[in-house]
């Protein structure tokens, strides 16, 4: 068997499959970039971030499904930590755990709550992210219940950012759909 015959026998992925992978990779890079950008931005306060990278997870959830969204969320935390230089630090542990919790909540709510939109999904995700951060910090690092005094005002802020991020994700998804027609 010649080399050219061997090459022809390798199954080639379909163009649609390659396009899907490229689209996912593009979203992953965008999400990682936003993750790093947010880490470098001046902080709006301790424990609080805008969650801009989550917009990309929501877009992936809407356009590519649950599996793609989950892998994208985890991937961007790992890549982001690599570039920020927080790999395996407490910040990374908190970030990864909170992302896992919020992504799980988002996927479950997207799957099981009827008539929920990306806004509601984002709202629940933001709340889950904030609560899980506090639980991880309280369980692993600070171990004082007084920590939870700070939670209610931050949850109010999470509601606002979660809602706005969801609205932004809905808008971007709609625009992408219009332009791809």
């Amino acid at each position: 068997m010649t080399a050219s015959q061997e090459i022809t026998q390798i199954p080639r992925p379909s163009l649609a499959s390659l396009e899907k992978k490229a689209y996912w990779l593009g979203l992953l890079l965008l999400a990682s970039g936003l993750h790093v950008f947010e880490a470098l931005m001046p902080s709006f306060g301790p424990w609080f971030k805008l969650g801009l990278a989550n917009i990309i997870t929501l877009i992936a959830l809407q356009s590519m499904g649950a599996k793609a969204a989950a892998s994208l969320a985890i991937g961007r935390v790992v890549i982001g930590a690599f570039f920020i230089g927080t790999m395996f630090t407490p910040t990374f542990i908190i970030s990864l755990t909170a992302t896992l919790a919020s992504t799980s909540v988002m996927l479950i709510s997207w799957r099981f709550i009827p008539r929920i939109s990306l806004i509601g999904v984002s709202l629940l995700g933001a709340l889950a992210h904030m609560c899980s951060q506090f639980v991880v910090v309280e369980q692993l690092f600070i171990q004082q219940i007084a920590l939870y005094y700070l939670l209610p005002p931050l949850l109010v802020l999470s509601c606002a950012t979660g809602w706005l991020n969801g609205a932004l994700a809905t808008y971007i998804t709609a625009q992408l759909t219009i332009r791809s027609r």
Partner: peptide, 23 residues
């Protein structure tokens, strides 16, 4: 773009009530 569905609004309302009560 901002209004969401009625399910989203109910979720927001319930969440805010819970937070305010806890706070």
């Amino acid at each position: 773009w901002l209004k969401g569905t009625w399910v989203d609004r109910i979720l927001l309302l319930l969440t805010l009530i819970t937070i305010i009560m806890g706070w």
